[in-house]
């Protein structure tokens, strides 16, 4: 182990020269990762655009059976959770351990609320046999096969988003553990900041999903 003359910050990894280099690398790494996420969701959005342009009626009809109330409520929940996350990032960078904990907990709670509401929405779909597959049923006016396509996309898109939320929840718990151990300070709070970026990204995905799945169908009607 090569040791530098001055005392090394405990969070500084061996292969970095200083905390700044480490911080810059972590930032660039996270942004690059988010870029891959954009491409991944991009593939899905592409499928959505192709299918919607082909089967507009079915998509309009199906979208009328999604609950704007629940979807809108969830949108607000997520936006507020982004705020609490931003506050957590700020307080961690100020070195306020207790405040950081509160905001992280708040974010986690809001994330859980979102998933809870999602559960309610999914249950309703399951009850009405709106799950694509052999038992799919549709009593609306549009062609059931194409509506099935809409619900396929709905479940894959919101499902992938929900999976990201669950991972985000895990990351929040990990941050709380680190915070409890007093790892964050004015000099070093990179993990909170990175998870913050991730959390905002997952939020933004929903900001696109909500209008595409719930709203624009009503506009076309």
């Amino acid at each position: 182990m090569s040791t530098s003359s001055e005392s090394k910050h405990p969070a500084l990894a061996d292969h970095f020269i200083d905390l700044k280099q480490q911080y810059d690398s972590a930032q660039l790494g996270m942004w690059s990762f988010l870029l891959t996420e954009v491409m991944m969701f991009g593939g899905l959005f592409m499928c959505y655009i192709v299918a919607r342009s082909q089967f507009l009626e079915a998509f309009v009809d199906a979208s009328h059976h999604l609950s704007i109330g629940l979807g809108g409520f969830n949108t607000i929940v997520l936006i507020v959770s982004s705020l609490t996350m931003a506050m957590a990032v700020h307080s961690a960078s100020e070195g306020h351990q207790k405040k950081t904990f509160k905001f992280l907990l708040g974010t986690l709670f809001l994330g859980a609320v979102f998933l809870g509401v999602k559960y309610i929405e999914y249950s309703a779909k399951i009850e009405h046999n709106n799950i694509p597959g052999d038992n799919f049923e549709w009593h609306g006016v549009a062609n059931p096969a194409n509506v099935e396509l809409f619900f396929g996309l709905y479940f894959v898109m919101t499902g992938l988003h929900a999976a990201h939320m669950i991972i985000g929840g895990g990351l929040l718990i990990w941050l709380m553990v680190l915070n409890h151990k007093g790892r964050f300070s004015k000099e070093f709070s990179t993990p909170v900041e990175l998870v913050g970026l991730y959390w905002h990204f997952v939020d933004i995905v929903w900001i696109f999903l909500f209008p595409l799945l719930y709203l624009i169908g009503r506009h076309s009607a």
Binding site: V141, A142, N143, A145, N146
Partner: peptide, 13 residues
């Protein structure tokens, strides 16, 4: 194959 996909105006599906 999919009669309801594109229904002509004035007719019921």
């Amino acid at each position: 194959f999919q009669p309801l996909a594109k229904v002509v105006a004035g007719f019921n599906p």
